[in-house]
């Protein structure tokens, strides 16, 4: 038994499924997922390769930590963070985070031509998942990071 108005119905279905399967055909040539690059001079020098908190926590919750740090530094002036394992860190994006997670730590960047992409580490994941970090509205973004 045939369909009534078969042409319109089939056209509608084809259009709908073309839209629905968009991620499938759009993803045919998709680039593989990025691995955040941990091969920086500062990290290589570390004896115990560990971030402020453990890896799983940092991967999921780094933005919470950054928010906590921002509030502590800006609102109460407290710059000392005591990590879960009792270690003390300076609460600073540029002097603590980027000290490790940049090819050339911000402290050593003298000239603009010398600036390497410090935010490459952030961007490798952030552009992958389509989240714009809110850090550079206050902090000055390194030129080549743009």
């Amino acid at each position: 038994m045939a369909m009534y108005n078969g042409r319109s119905i089939v056209t509608g279905l084809v259009l709908f499924f073309a839209l629905l399967t968009f991620p499938f055909w759009y993803g045919l040539g998709a680039a593989p997922a990025p691995e955040p690059d941990l091969n920086t001079p500062a990290i290589q020098k570390l004896v115990e390769k560990k971030c402020v908190e453990n890896r799983e926590f940092m991967r999921a919750n780094h933005m919470e930590l950054l928010k906590e740090w921002r509030n502590a530094v800006v609102r109460t002036g407290n710059r000392v963070y005591i990590a879960g394992d009792g270690k003390k860190y300076e609460m600073s994006l540029q002097n603590t985070c980027l000290d490790c997670h940049a090819n050339i730590p911000p402290k050593q960047v003298k000239t603009t031509s010398n600036q390497l992409s410090q935010v490459q580490f952030c961007n490798s994941c952030h552009s992958y998942v389509g989240v714009k970090p809110d850090c550079w509205t206050c902090h000055i973004q390194p030129k080549e990071g743009r």
């Binding site: 993803g27 997922a33 799983e56 994941c125």
Partner: peptide
Amino acid sequence: FKVDIAAVKKLAMGLVT
């Protein structure tokens, strides 16, 4: 309760490819 969003995308991209 945050999860590792990059890992989630890896899973999703694995599914669509």
